[in-house]
Simulated scan of single mutants.
Amino acid sequence: MCNERACLGSVMAIPGRGEIARNPEEVLNDAKDFLGQYFASIRRANTPAHEARWQAVQDEVARSGTYQLTTTELVFGCKLAWRNASRCIGRIQWSKLQHRNVIGN
């Protein structure tokens, strides 16, 4: 789904198919991969916390077809995306990305 212009890995609807949502299996596969990377990065892979979070994500996807990232997961995902943006000349600074809460629009 991604190309040289945009990463669409986090999009829950499939581009070009209107508002047709991704199927739950695809969402779960991507979530499992992401959570594996996240928990490995904080040296908590295969711990009770990792297993509990994976179970919570599975439950939420089963209920709604999607799931919400925690703030720390979101920050990790942003840093990971910037680090992996091969065409960005500023990506060497990826680890210094800071999160700022913005309430409202």
Rank of each mutant, 00 (worst) to 15 (best):
E19D: 13
K32W: 06
G77D: 08
G104E: 06
T72V: 09
C78S: 12
A52P: 09
V61H: 07
G77H: 11
N46P: 01
I92C: 07
A40Y: 00
A13N: 11
R87W: 14
A49D: 04
S10T: 04
A52K: 14
H99R: 05
A52V: 10
L97I: 10
E51W: 03
V102N: 02
A52F: 13
D30M: 03
L80F: 14
S95Q: 11
A40C: 02
C78R: 14
G65T: 11
R22T: 09
V61G: 03
A40R: 04
I92R: 15
T47M: 05
T47A: 07
I42T: 04
G9Q: 03
P24G: 06
S41M: 04
G36V: 03
R43L: 09
E25P: 01
I103N: 08
A62G: 13
Q93S: 12
W54R: 11
L69I: 00
I20M: 09
P24E: 10
S64R: 15
E73T: 01
N46A: 12
Q93H: 13
V11P: 00
V102Q: 10
A49Q: 07
L80W: 14
G36M: 03
S64G: 11
C2N: 05
G36I: 03
G18P: 05
I20D: 10
S64Q: 15
H50Y: 08
E25W: 13
M1Q: 03
R5M: 05
R43E: 06
P24C: 04
Q68M: 12
D59M: 04
E73K: 00
Q98I: 08
S95F: 09
V61I: 15
Q68P: 07
G104F: 00
F39H: 02
R22D: 07
V57M: 10
F76C: 02
T47S: 14
D33K: 09
G104W: 00
R87S: 15
L74I: 01
C7N: 12
V57L: 07
R83T: 05
L28Y: 03
R22I: 14
S10A: 08
L80T: 08
I20C: 05
T66E: 08
I14M: 03
A49E: 08
E4C: 12
K79D: 00
N105G: 03
S10I: 12
I89P: 14
H99K: 00
C78P: 02
R91T: 00
F34D: 06
L74H: 13
A31C: 09
T70H: 04
T47C: 02
G16D: 00
D59G: 12
T66C: 10
A85K: 06
L80K: 04
S41D: 09
E26V: 14
R22F: 08
S95A: 14
E26T: 15
N29K: 04
